[in-house]
Design a protein around this nucleic acid. Sequence first.
DNA 1: ATAAATCTTTACAAAATCTTTACTGTTTTC
DNA 2: GAAAACAGTAAAGATTTTGTAAAGATTTAT
Lengths: 221, 221
Amino acid sequence: MKNILIIDDDIHIGDMLEETLTKKGYGVRRAYSGTEALLVLSNSKPDLVLLDLMLPGLKGEEVLPQIKGIPVIVVSAKVDVDNKVDLLLGGAADYITKPFETKELLARIAVQLRSAVSPEVVSKLEFDDMILDMNSHIVSIGDSNIKLTRTEYAILKLLMQNPSQVVAKSLILDRISEETPDCTESSLKMHISNLRKKLREVNNKDYIEAIWGIGFKMRTE
Amino acid sequence: MKNILIIDDDIHIGDMLEETLTKKGYGVRRAYSGTEALLVLSNSKPDLVLLDLMLPGLKGEEVLPQIKGIPVIVVSAKVDVDNKVDLLLGGAADYITKPFETKELLARIAVQLRSAVSPEVVSKLEFDDMILDMNSHIVSIGDSNIKLTRTEYAILKLLMQNPSQVVAKSLILDRISEETPDCTESSLKMHISNLRKKLREVNNKDYIEAIWGIGFKMRTE
DNA sequence: ATAAATCTTTACAAAATCTTTACTGTTTTC
DNA sequence: GAAAACAGTAAAGATTTTGTAAAGATTTAT
């Protein structure tokens, strides 16, 4: 059974949503504020989140980036384009504007859940004895979990997605800059350095190879 | 570079889309009917498809289920809800209704492409028993990998791309100077010399032939 | 608000690469 | 045949790139 977290302070809409979804066979949890939502999310991992933007306290826009690995459908009365764009770029899987038709909402939910579950989505990357889990954001070598920062994780993921290719420095910068806008060559060097150090501490192995003048790749020997 | 297939019989909208996308750095292909689209898709695999629903002949709704493994964004003037639902359930990754704002379309495209895994393009050059892999930047003869510098790699690649032609020194200098700006004739001589030495150490063969006064080519005998 | 974590910059040493210079031998031109 | 132009190699100095540390700036968490 799929579980859906409804984040909405409006009791009426929330109740209506809950009823509709329950009738459709989904499990439903409720949160009535942004802070409560984060609390719920820290303890459980629903399959999908319905997020209202107009929340008391912590706003929906602020909650959104903190939800990772779970598709979020934004439910909002706001309709202006800039907002839509920001939302999609900010990590929303989809959005729907009030008032909406139940049928449409259910379709969008189905689409998100289908793609989240579909087996062709590879959620784990493996290289040698290292495993990167894209759902939990955990990287492990053997039994040891390695705590990486957001940027380190992003770099490693990019390298592991193309294990046989050289990933150009410029490409890394492009991708990373979506997350941290001011990543320059010199800071990239540092991230790589720190990443290597963390991996080295486990294994005394250097997983990353520099291709002089081009970029980096996973070391194969 | 990401490639997008635009399926639309309306020349004006299609042109507008193509211009917008090209400006953004995407590669664009066009198809003006459902049947043409399927033809294009049977020969090539774009990273994303923009599909207009109102097509002559084979309708968009009929084309949609036949596109597999590529995210499809439906572009349509139809707005009734049932249609949206059917589309999403029928496999569309997203849809956008005309008239739409360019910014929003670009955002939706970015979202779809972001989640897609980059297909690994196999591009290898072979000459005799030597293989140059353009993804990994690895050059190998038999079982031995050869470690080349950026410039040596670029020169060898240029020669191997035109194995039957003589590559003029000036041409090599032009191409190479993109990577190392101060490459002169005398330094080119050195690069060739060093390159030969590295290849010779594996095989005791001289793969590169000098054409007196003109340039170099791969040796065929 | 304060502390902690993370990111970026600066600076510098080490390594790899690139270019120049100098010299030898070969090919073409006159 | 001699001079000029070209090709090849070695050695050395110049340049570029990489790797790391330390410190300041920024973001995030408490």
